[in-house]
Design a protein around this nucleic acid. Structure first.
Lengths: 252, 252
DNA sequence: CTTGACCCTCACGTAACGGCAGGCGGGAGC
DNA sequence: GCTCCCGCCTGCCGTTACGTGAGGGTCAAG
């Protein structure tokens, strides 16, 4: 039931220095000391540290965390509730960022210029004068980044040409199906919609049916995307959008 | 097509000082200056800033961002792909944190002690010696936090007593249904499972059917949770779990 | 031609630790 | 009982990513 700094640091995923720092500023002082001055943490200290870690992950400054944790009005359960709420808000925000990236990616693929607002919309929508920053240290050393780095750098100039060719080939065949008079929910059109989805998944990002229909909506909702497809073939934006929706429904 | 620092700062959601800083360290130098020395940013600068903001949000140190962006091997599209991937990884991690909170909340509700590993599991699973930190500044000023604060602090001692009473009342009625011999997928049992879900939603966090079945699984998978329910009534853990699952299926 | 909002360059301040120096403590192996 | 290495201690200076003025030009609207 009593732990040393090293043990606490290891299990909580922080450094000893961090625990020293928390002690210095009075955010987390161990409940006791050994005869020789060693810090001794108990289970209550660990619970407090758990809350500290979560609030830190959510971006709160230490001073504020101290204020929140020392507030006698909110017990441990209240903190868990608040953390749960803040986490879900945050997840929502990251999901919006993902959507924004997908939008930017489509725009970049189709050579459509973005306005400043569109580029930064997702950053500027909470408090007009308080914006969110983040400084997650040493992410560069994590698996996720290395993996991403490996994948991204695998694309060579050659790959790009192949991707372009694949896209153009798909476009030709899609126009053919359109011209044949087959409806947008015909097997042939749906098959090409599915191929469209798989091309995105292969070259860009895992494109679920949900994400795919999101793109479809974008194609008809945003006039620049619409214009891009209309230049290829009149009515293509709506037709493609419908085919994507039909495909998503039939595969679900 | 040319913007001043102030305009860029406003639309990108950063301060002028930040842009000055990026200029100083050579991360983002405006493409030109006016005759009187004013910084002039163009669209390419904005695109670069967009990438900087996303990488920052993902926690990369500025130096590394500079290295990534100056790498001739990866074009803008490659950055978007990488950001998309990193964001989804991050979302997954936050979702794991949410689950961990739900676990901790149930444990706290039922007075079950957690081991250090369980408290910090979610923090310690990437690189054994490189952990993720975050310092999103001024979150304390955002809407999300204030809202959360308002909600959490609304609970008074009185509320807690009411919550406890509500829970006990539910428990009594649940045991009654069990004793009546009705199967776990009977309307009566399912009705009480639904009520269980709504009590959680009302008092703790929005508990979807998915989250609810997650809890149900926990009740039978973790012996401490099982033991808690078994002390109330033999077979209750499995019965409750089954009722929750049946309820979720029938409502979906 | 003034005035207020906006821009410039220093330059010091801050938060949350990282990292090292210099020194004590402790337990396991001889 | 001694040694040896690892873990703990307390300073203390360094770093990142800006914040926050100070002191002084600039630009457009009235």
């Amino acid at each position: 039931m009593a732990y040393t700094v090293g043990q606490v640091a290891k299990s909580a995923g922080v450094t000893v220095r961090t625990l020293h720092h928390y002690d210095e500023i009075g955010l987390l002082s161990p409940s006791g000391r050994s005869g020789t001055g060693y810090r001794r943490y108990d289970d209550a200290d660990l619970e407090r540290l758990q809350h500290i870690r979560y609030y830190r992950e959510l971006g709160f400054p230490l001073e504020e965390i101290a204020a929140i944790l020392n507030d006698p009005a909110s017990d441990p359960a209240a903190h868990l509730r608040r953390q749960h709420e803040l986490l879900t808000v945050r997840i929502k925000r990251l999901q919006e960022m993902v959507t924004a990236i997908e939008f930017a990616m489509e725009a970049s693929k189709l050579n459509i210029p973005l306005t400043p607002q569109e580029r930064f919309e997702v950053f500027g929508d909470f408090d007009p004068d308080a914006h969110a920053e983040e400084a997650e240290q040493r992410w560069g050393g994590t698996e996720a980044y290395r993996e991403s780095n490996r994948r991204v750098s695998r694309y060579t100039k050659d790959d790009w040409l192949r991707n372009k060719a694949e896209n153009e080939d798909w476009g030709r065949r899609f126009v053919e199906v359109m011209s044949s008079g087959a409806p947008a929910d015909s097997p042939a059109a749906m098959e090409l919609a599915e191929e469209h989805r798989q091309i995105i998944s292969r070259w860009f990002y895992e494109c679920s049916y949900e994400v795919h229909t999101g793109l479809a909506d974008m194609y008809v909702a945003d006039e620049r995307f619409t214009a891009y497809f209309e230049r290829i073939r009149t009515g293509m934006a709506a037709y493609l959008s419908e085919a994507i929706h039909a495909n998503a429904i039939s595969r679900a």
